[in-house]
Computed example of a mutant assay.
Amino acid sequence: MSSPLSLFVTGTDTEIGKTLVSCALLRGFANAGLAAAAMKPVAAGAEFNAEDGMWHNEDADQLDAAAGVLLPPEVRTPYLLQAPAAPHIVAAQEGRTLEIAPIVQCHREAMQRADVVVVEGVGGFRVPLDGTRDTADLAVALGLPVVLVVGVRLGCINHALLTADAVAARGLRLAGWVANIVDPAMRFADENVQTIREWLAREHGAPLLGTVPHLAPPSAQVAAEHLNIDALLHALRSNTL
C-alpha cells in the first residue's frame, strides 16, 4: 500500500478561491479513486448552529462537503475562531494561542485516515499566527509541498511571483499552481496567466495545474473538471521534501 499524500494550499491573497480550489482538489482526488480528507487548521469566522450545538465555519463546512473522508471537527480545524478577522488578533481577543505542534499532531492523525490530505491555509502565505510565527512556519512544520492558488485579477502577476519566492525561501517546493479567474472583466486575463506560467515554470519548476473559469455560483465539481489531477499526483509522489 502506498504512503498517504498531502499538500498545503495557499493563495496570493484572501478571497481568491483557496477553498473552491481545495474542494475541487478533493473532488478530483475522489474521481481518481483516492480517499481524500481536508484540514482547515485555523479558521477565523464562525457561527453557532443551534440544531447541532456546534460552531461552524463556512470554509470548513465546504471542505467537509467535498471530502470523501470526514475528520472529527477538532482534527479538521484545531483552531476555530469566532470573528472573521486576522487570526492572531482574534485569538488574542479570545485568550487563545495558535500553537503549531497541535496542528502537526492533527495532521498525523488525518494521514492515518485517508489516502490524501488537503491542508488549506488561511489568507495568504504569511499570515501571522502570533507575534513571531506565521502560516509559512506552519507549512514548514508540516513539511508539505505547496499548491498556490492565484486569484486572476489586476496585480496577480506580482502577487504570484512574490508568493512563489516566499515559498521557495522557506525551503518548500511549489508542486504547482492554479489560476482562478476572480475578475471576469479583467483585460488580458489569458496573457496574465501565460506570463505567470512561464515565470513560475522557469524559476520554480512549478506547472500550471489548471485554470478555473469564473463560476457563478461556485461549484467544486465543475472546478475539478478544469484541474490536471494526474499531473499533481505525479508531483506529489515525486516530492523529495
Rank of each mutant, 00 (worst) to 15 (best):
D115I: 03
G121H: 09
E74Q: 14
E99I: 07
H88R: 10
I89A: 12
L71P: 00
A85D: 14
R76A: 12
A114K: 08
D115H: 10
Q105S: 14
P102E: 02
A110M: 04
R133F: 13
V90Q: 04
P102C: 05
V122D: 12
M111P: 09
A110W: 02
G121I: 02
V116S: 02
V90D: 03
I103Y: 00
E94V: 06
V90G: 02
A92W: 15
P78A: 09
A83M: 13
Q112L: 15
L129P: 05
Q82L: 10
V104M: 01
A114G: 01
P87E: 07
A110Q: 03
P72C: 06
L129Q: 02
A85N: 11
V119I: 07
T135M: 15
T77V: 02
I103F: 00
L71W: 04
R113Y: 13
L98D: 01
V127K: 12
A91K: 04
H88K: 13
A83V: 13
C106Y: 02
P84V: 06
D134T: 11
L98E: 04
E94Y: 09
V116F: 08
H107V: 01
L80R: 02
R126D: 11
L71Q: 00
I103T: 04
A114F: 07
E74M: 15
H107N: 11
T97E: 15
Q93W: 09
L98R: 10
D130K: 10
T77F: 01
E120F: 04
P72L: 07
G95D: 04
Q82M: 12
L80G: 10
L129H: 08
I103C: 04
P73W: 07
E120D: 10
Q105L: 13
R113I: 09
R126I: 13
P73N: 14
R113S: 08
G131A: 12
F125A: 08
V118A: 07
D115M: 06
A92T: 09
H107E: 03
